[in-house]
Each structure stands twice: as structure tokens, then as C-alpha cells.
Amino acid sequence: MSGRKPGFVDEAQAAPVAEAPRRPVLLEPLPGAPSAIEPEWAPGAVRQRVGTSSLAWLVGGVALLLLGWIGLSAVELVLAAFDRAAAYGWAASAVLGAAAAMIFWALSVEWRAWRALARVDRLRALLEGGGLEPARAAALGWVGQVSARLRDPAAARAAVGRAGSVVELRAALQLHVTGPLTEAAGQAGQRAALQAGALVALAPHPALDALLAGWRGVRLVREVAAIHGLRPGAVATWALARRVVATAAGTAGVELLTQGLSDQLLQHMPVLRHVAGAVPGATLAAVRLYRLARVTAVACSPLSGGRM
């Protein structure tokens, strides 16, 4: 094939008809041959999930419309106030300015929460397959973030500093940081379980059960996140909740769900046992909340947990 052009057999470049088969040969290096071969292979990036559905565009459009309308009418309001009297105008400006500052503050809280979540994700990726030094730096940052919850932050920092490999680094974090945090999350879960159990027992109508448990669940997610140094605002809570769902559905969650948690929980909480005996739905709500705490802890932790 190669080099053999079609043509008449008496032409010079054409192959003779009954040519002997050509044998394989390893030829001598050409002048200037490279010392290594890099194949032409450059995989691009996979387009990640682009979740912008038509609904999202709709919501975005409506939000923009509302915000624009509010902003423009605010400016108009201030201008109109100045037209009436200067003092009146200043008062209007002050009110609007204060409102804007509050909104801005809320946004910055959201932004910081979002950043903190991203940092944990980055650390998780580094711990799963990154260089030791970047992982160590990220781990130290995270220890700083949660140090308020640790019994001995200095020991945690020292252990992280001493780790000689990523595997050891994971172990150090597990021992000094995520262990205590998971414990704290478990306690938060138990508290929530108890409250929910009691609430459900008191609820006048079974239809309210889900509502109560749901409300307590959102609070619990935020509590556990706070334990892990994340102080999520509304948006970050939403992001976190999705992550929790993914964790529960994914690999880590299944293991958690099948640990006989309900037995464990009931053993530790005699009060709940009594409530459970009286109101059937109560245990279920309680156990669910307790599990939620555990799964959230996994989702917030840079160790374990499915890759997001």
C-alpha cells in the first residue's frame, strides 16, 4: 500500500505484480532522531453538565426584570424626592443606601459560603490524586477553617505538617479533624432527631409530619455545615443539599444507610424509644434526620464521599 501507486506495471513507480511480500524491519535511526516519542494525543476537556434548562433562563429573566425595575424606580424615587426638598432627598438616599448595603452584605455572605464549599471540593480532589505539597497547603487552610471545633488544633496542624504522603495526610485529617467533626455532626443529628420525634408526636395531623421534618432537615444541614466550617447562606445551602442528595444516592451514602443506624440511634436515646413506642411515624422521622446529619457530614468533608 504505502508508496505503491496505482499505474501500469511497466511504469517505474508501479509495483511489479508478483512482488515478494515485504518483511518487517527495524531501521537505523535517522539523523536527528528524537530521544523520546510523544504521540499525537491531546484529549480535550469533557463538557461538564450544563444544567441551564429553560426554566433557569425563565427564572433568570424574571429576576433581572424585577431587579432592573426595582433599581430604576429607586433612582427615580430619589430624584423625585430631591425635586421636592433636599432634606427629603437625603432621607430617601439614606434609606435606599442602607437597603442596598444589607443586600450587598447578604450577597457577600453567600459568596464566602460558596468559596468555602469550593475550597473543600478542591481539597477533596487533591486528596484523591494530587501532589503532596498542594494537598498539604489546602489541608492546612481547611484546618484553619474548622479549628474552632477542634479539641487540639495545634496537634492537627502538626500532624498535617508531618505527613510524608497523601495517604498519611488523609489519615492525619481523619484522626485529628474529620473524626471529631463527624462526632459533632452525629450529636447535632441526635438533637434534631429527638426534636423531630417529639414534634411529630405532638403534631395534630400526620400531614404535618413531613413539613416539620423537612424544616428541621434544612436547619440540620446548615448546622452540620457550620460544624465543618461552612456557614452557608440560602444559595449555598441549596447547593449543599444537592450535594447531600448525590452523596446519599452515590456510593458513600449507601454504606451509611445500611449501617443499622436506627438501632444505634435508638439505643443511645431512651427518650426517643418511648416516643417511638407511642407514635409510629416519630421514629422514622428521627432516624431520617439522624441519617441526614451523617450524610451531610460526608458531603461536607474533604475525605471520602463520592466525587462530585
Binding site: 500500500m1 504505502s2 511480500p21 524491519v25 527495524l26 535511526p29 528524537p34
Partner: peptide, 28 residues
């Protein structure tokens, strides 16, 4: 690379234990 008077298709690779790429002609 040219082989036996004409250009042939080869692959270039560094054989194990050597330090320069050599063309390999797979034959028919």
C-alpha cells in the same frame, strides 16, 4: 522514510534500551 527506493509508511518509536527513535516498517 525512504526504503528500497521509495517512501514507505513507518512508525517511529524508541526501542527499549536505546535512546533514539528508530523507524519500524511493519512489512506486508
Amino acid at each position: 522514510v525512504p526504503l528500497g527506493g521509495r517512501d514507505v509508511e513507518v512508525v517511529l518509536g524508541v526501542p527499549v534500551g536505546e535512546d533514539r527513535a528508530r523507524p519500524y516498517f511493519v512489512g506486508d
